[in-house]
Write a protein that binds this DNA or RNA. Sequence first.
DNA 1: AGGTTTCGCTAAACCGGTTTTCTAAACCGG
DNA 2: CCGGTTTAGAAAACCGGTTTAGCGAAACCT
Lengths: 342, 342
Amino acid sequence: MSKTAVSFAFNNPDRLSSETATRIREVADSLGYRPHPVARLLTQRQTMTLGVLTPQALAVIFSNPFFALFSEGVAHAAEDLGYELHFISPRNGSLALAMRRATVDGVVAIGLSGDHPEVEQIRGSGLPMVLVDSEDLPEHSSVVVDDEGGARAAAEHVAGLGHRDILVVAVERPDASSAREPGTPDGVADRRLRGYRAGLAASDIDVGPEWIVAGRASIDGGESAFQRAWAFGLRPSAVLAMSDAMAIGSMRAARQLGLRIPDDVSIVGFDDIDLAALVDPALTTVHQPIRQKGIDAVRLLLTEMELRAGNQPEHLRLETRLIVRGSTGPAPRERQEVRRLE
Amino acid sequence: MSKTAVSFAFNNPDRLSSETATRIREVADSLGYRPHPVARLLTQRQTMTLGVLTPQALAVIFSNPFFALFSEGVAHAAEDLGYELHFISPRNGSLALAMRRATVDGVVAIGLSGDHPEVEQIRGSGLPMVLVDSEDLPEHSSVVVDDEGGARAAAEHVAGLGHRDILVVAVERPDASSAREPGTPDGVADRRLRGYRAGLAASDIDVGPEWIVAGRASIDGGESAFQRAWAFGLRPSAVLAMSDAMAIGSMRAARQLGLRIPDDVSIVGFDDIDLAALVDPALTTVHQPIRQKGIDAVRLLLTEMELRAGNQPEHLRLETRLIVRGSTGPAPRERQEVRRLE
DNA sequence: AGGTTTCGCTAAACCGGTTTTCTAAACCGG
DNA sequence: CCGGTTTAGAAAACCGGTTTAGCGAAACCT
């Protein structure tokens, strides 16, 4: 049998007598033969695989509930369309290298900011790409959420409750040189900080630099951030945390110091991951449609892949909203008194 | 320039004058050219990618903290060794088809039981493969945990606290025909149930079939399972749940019925995901080294890939252990009285 | 100066399939 | 019985690289 016949038997059985086709497949089965998947990709010119580009190592990604939820959205949309998923993380520290090697038809890049050291190389790869949580590459479509608006709502909420001494727990910028460090993409922290500032400024509250502490975007990171602030002598009555994990860590730290929540300290998170509603007291937080971001990103990516030439990139901005739960309450009375006397 | 020269410029610059090599790369850059990743795979005969075979859809996988933690382990080990990750889930409902098409060097199969309808085809694919949570394909290496022992310890714990009316909240078998259904792999539920039975039998407690309720392995699944049992008229003083998520769901359902935990109802989970320590009261549960399973699976897979011929498969069994936290306590007094009177 | 290395690059084979083109035999109606 | 059409399968081109073998020119050696 010629290899043509074998190929037909697998992909185009109509071009063979049904008898020969079955015979070929039987022989193939008994020999344990399968068409080499890579070779067929070469001619088919598409892999039916989408890449998820993450600036951090996969081991970090998967331990982050935020990414899990985002991936769920991406997976949902991709699977519906028959695409598989391939995760692209820095290879030997280089994202651009990993991307060059990636056998995918398109890429969803999460948190790829314009000041990433390799952004130019990534840009030049020619692969269809959609950015999530960044709009820094305007030639590519993007999906962002209203970080600033959400943060402002959070800040206005605590200001409205009478809080004046407000600690901002920020996610630290992942050090670009050590890709293994966790953290939230760069621009996000900036936008949220701007939102906090705007929301507090409306009540004439200014956030001094010592009232901003940063840490890894994890429960432990939030815990130690709060502890550092306390040790520094700060006595916040409210905490604005840039991630739910950090908010929960701050809650834990506050409890260990004997503070009650929300009686002594109010705490607001960001993201609204599943966990936020499960802790006690349930966390007041800014909801963002994480899963939906993944779905929309894939949708935009497929548009970009289809109309390869001269298509207008689309820039999507999804809403955030404050969800008030049990972790925030009025500022303690005596503190308001103290302030008044000062 | 010949394409040979271009190839050398990228992979083997020493064979070109350094001047030509840089020139070629510059031109390539300016033209936005990158070597076709698929074509190079074809000659290199390895993809440097490992597959993670999951019997359920990816959208389901990523919403499951258990899988997230397992993937974290796999990713950690794979990345250290320079491998990337490709998730293989049923394609058009067929796992075997997805696997035939997968461009990977080896596969970690999670929860692939011997009675999976396509197991024979998967078996015949010839790809190096390691099984996790199943030992049904003895020719492949495997990693399992002592489910039965852990379940027995959990059962002995509640029996020792004086509980007699014990509800088992089981993970339902995912329907093989509809791969989109969530749930825990088949064999696992059986093993855990055996363990529960053994542990309770030691205290002469028999679990009747009406005391076993099944549901999806999620918080919602656990919640509705407990509600169903209650509506059926069962009044358990303790719950043995086969997953932490279901345990937490049962906690929620019990609370809504006005029951206190652990005063009125004790609850035990399984897995010891992060969340288990964070809920209030903290969940008593059976710890299993989920992350380690992923790491070990990759390690075994690489051995299997290296010594392709005539190697002995290795079968690893990791320990489980009961972690007693706040969700379990002594059986309510009055109920013990009632029993004594009967 | 003549022969041997080394250097810098290219031609050709190969990876393992798919797809297009082609050929030989079977089939068909008149 | 004959020319034209189907049909079954094979041959060849192609996908886009890598790798081996080869070749001419320059450099090296005695």
